[in-house]
């Protein structure tokens, strides 16, 4: 007796999350630029992961002669306190990408730079969407406040935030959030001003959707391309911001390394040991370039079919 077999396997009908992630990544792999960028970013992620369990030497221990050039023992040389630069460079990746130290010894996954950028993205997006979509006094009020914030010198803003709240990773995140949000908001506002004139927005309004729905479900996904690129750039700014804060003595507390502070520490001894500045600078540059290439590739591929 013939039994009718279902022609479609229900399990196959919806791809799993992993498959969807892979499909997303496959999109990046179609772009050579995006693939190179992803490889560069993944390299640092892998370095950060390895540094969680292994570094050549303890990163904060002064075990060697000071300011040594690269040699067989210390592949990247040593810093002004006789610490192995490779170990510090590896460990420095953690603060950028992998972990955030909270008060009372708690650790939050994902690094300070990423949280800072996420914070400014969230805050900037909410403000920018409201200003751009709602217009009127919403726009006036939000943009006036943000313009005032932008008019403030960034370092003064950092100082105000940190003077008010003290030192620590989460304060640095907040400082990056507060200083980054106005830029994101302006970008999102300009995108929203454009997108809100499209027909599908009229359709959503006709359906009676709430403004929040329209902003976050209709407008935001269509603004993601430039936003992603901007966010990737902002990770680079955030790394530099951490360095600037370190220079002012109000950033991440030593001795745990972060790339920005490594540059600032080594800067004082640049004439005696220039390579100590070069390594963390190269690390910052390569991560920022990697993030940009990745973002470019992603944008390229996601917008290809929209044209």
């Amino acid at each position: 007796m013939a039994v009718a077999q279902p022609t479609v396997d229900p399990a196959r009908r919806r791809p799993s999350r992993l498959q969807r992630l892979w499909a997303g990544l496959a999109l990046v792999f179609q772009s050579r630029v995006g693939t190179i960028g992803l490889a560069m970013v993944l390299f640092w992620v892998v370095v950060a992961l390895i540094s969680l369990v292994w570094t050549p030497y303890p990163p904060n221990a002064s075990l060697f002669e000071q300011n040594l050039p690269p040699n067989g023992t210390n592949w990247l040389g040593t810093d002004h306190l006789g610490r192995d630069l490779l170990s510090r460079l590896m460990t420095g990746t953690q603060v950028i990408l992998l972990k955030t130290r909270l008060p009372n010894g708690l650790v939050l996954p994902i690094g300070v730079a990423i949280w800072g950028v996420l914070g400014s993205l969230v805050l900037g997006t909410v403000l920018g969407l409201n200003a751009g979509y709602r217009g009127g006094w919403w726009d006036q009020t939000i943009m006036q406040v943000l313009d005032a914030l932008i008019a403030f010198p960034r370092i003064v803003l950092y100082l105000v935030v940190i003077a008010a709240l003290g030192q620590g990773d989460w304060v640095v995140i907040l400082a990056i959030t507060v200083t980054g949000a106005p830029g994101v908001a302006r970008l999102v506002r300009s995108l929203a001003l454009d997108i809100k004139t499209r027909d599908f927005i009229r359709a959503a309004e006709t359906r009676g959707e709430s403004p929040w729905y329209i902003m976050f479900v209709e407008i935001l996904p269509n603004a993601r391309g430039p936003l992603i690129v901007d966010a990737m750039l902002r990770v680079g700014y955030a790394i530099f911001a951490i360095g600037t804060l370190g220079f002012l003595g109000i950033g991440l507390p030593p001795p745990d390394p972060d790339w920005g502070s490594m540059v600032n520490d080594a800067r004082r001894f640049i004439y005696a040991n220039p390579l100590a500045v070069v390594w963390p600078s190269l690390a910052i540059a390569s991560l920022v370039v990697g993030l940009n290439l990745f973002a470019d590739g992603l944008r390229e591929e996601t917008t290809r079919y929209q044209k």
Binding site: N60, A61, S62, L248, G249, I250, P253, P254, P255
Partner: peptide
């Protein structure tokens, strides 16, 4: 530098020193 060196040197003695270095 003194502060960072001391933090490392004092660790085996049982001090956990947090550094608060300002301008």
């Amino acid at each position: 530098e003194i502060a960072q060196a001391l933090k490392e040197l004092a660790e085996p003695a049982g001090f956990d020193i947090t550094l608060d270095i300002t301008e």
